[in-house]
Simulated scan of single mutants.
Amino acid sequence: MKILAVTACPSGVAHTYMAAEALEKAAKVKGIEIKVETQGSIGIENKITAADIKDTDAVILTKDMGIKEAERFNGLPIVKVAISDVVKKAEQILDKVEAYINGKKQV
């Protein structure tokens, strides 16, 4: 399973990176491949490329502010989540995304 995520918060500092770290840690525990792009005050880091998007199962986007270049993910399952929820509930978010993906593959 491969998930992509983009985190961004209004100030572009702490929560952007805290959310990215929370997703990466939760994915590692669950054995999920994840790449997290951050869109913070210093710009886009760890940019998601077309090659990354090619085989992804779902995309997680934070919804507290606009995500730059979101059109890259058109046609993919997208989950929009508040940045504070990603920081506090990353594992539960990944559980829900994983259940959705597994349900879709069984159909």
Rank of each mutant, 00 (worst) to 15 (best):
T38K: 10
S41N: 12
F73Y: 13
M65N: 13
P77V: 00
G31L: 12
E69K: 11
I101Y: 11
K47W: 04
V97E: 02
D55Q: 03
T38D: 10
I93K: 08
E98A: 06
G103H: 03
R72H: 08
I53H: 03
I67Y: 00
S41V: 13
E91I: 04
I67N: 04
V97G: 02
L76S: 10
Q92Y: 04
I60L: 14
K89S: 13
K47R: 15
K47Y: 07
D85Y: 03
L76G: 01
D95M: 03
T49R: 04
V36A: 05
K68P: 00
K96S: 13
Q39C: 09
I48A: 11
K104I: 09
G66E: 11
D64N: 13
I83D: 01
I32W: 06
G103S: 10
I93W: 06
K68H: 03
G43P: 07
V81L: 06
I48S: 06
K63G: 13
D55W: 00
K63Y: 00
A58N: 00
Q92P: 00
V86R: 05
G66W: 01
A99R: 09
A70E: 15
Y100F: 14
T49D: 09
L94S: 04
G75D: 08
F73L: 05
L94C: 04
K47I: 12
E91V: 08
G75F: 10
S84C: 11
A70S: 14
Q106A: 15
T49S: 15
G40V: 03
K88M: 14
N74F: 09
D95Y: 07
Q106W: 05
E71L: 11
V81P: 00
D55G: 01
D55F: 00
A82W: 02
D52G: 09
A99M: 10
L94Q: 03
A51T: 09
A50S: 14
A82K: 14
E37V: 12
I32V: 12
V107C: 00
F73P: 00
I60W: 02
